[in-house]
Amino acid sequence: MSVVTGNTAASATPAKSLAQRINWVKLAPWLYTIGLFVLWELLVIVLQTPPTILPAPSRVFQAIVQYWSPIWKNSLQTLYTTTVGFAIAVVAGLAIGLFIGWSKAIYAGLYPLMIGFNAIPKVALVPILVIWFGIGAVPAILTAFLISFFPIVVNVATGLATIEPETEDVLRALGAKKLDIMLKVGIPRSMPYFFGSLKVAITLAFVGSVVSETVASNYGLGNMMSSAQSQFNVPLVFAGLLMLAVEGIAMYALMAWIERRMTGWAHRSTMSQ
């Protein structure tokens, strides 16, 4: 690293001051992304892989432009099923998490069940959902919900279950009921866990909705990719993957932003220790 900067400094002095003014850390994600695409492009050129196996990024971008209208429609559809499923997961996960964290007995009884449920691959549930609700948006929404609510439940329940006993003692000695302790300590305390879990949950929700769309829907990126695949339109498959990645990153960033906004105290308080 030092060798590289030494070289550039020797060859071009004004470039060095420019290099210093750039915030490399901020720029790094973009540079790495571009680097990845360049590498991929070069790989395709060198190995001369046919576009039906691995299309070059330029070919994928071309496909995005060419099929923009269906890509856009299906992206919105996937975003819609994912966010609806995710929203249900947030509400249900929060509720179930609070319920489980409420008492040691409930926690002990339900936790193994939850683990067992989470171990079931959600793909396996899609056929059942199709039997119940037919193909289309509903199974996609439900799969997104089923796959993403578990981390929310676990995090909220953990936040509640790890209240410091001394805090609880101080409040109970004042005559606090269980509900008081939950409202005053448990729930605010579990919020950083909750908002932290949203980042994990949203990415899982995409997995769920796309899996379901792939096998049981006529809309959405999952469906678009599977039909493109059956027509050997591999650049379009990759275009779909790219759109998924973009949506995933955007939603993740949104969740991270919400987390910072809502529970800044948790980050600052641990930083100060």
């Binding site: 410091e164 001394e166 805090t167 101080v170 005053k184 300590v185 605010p188 305390r189 919020m191 529970t263 105290w265 948790a266 308080s269």
Partner: peptide, 8 residues
């Protein structure tokens, strides 16, 4: 001994 102030 532990002040147990609520950080929020």
């Amino acid at each position: 001994q532990n002040p147990t102030m609520l950080p929020w």
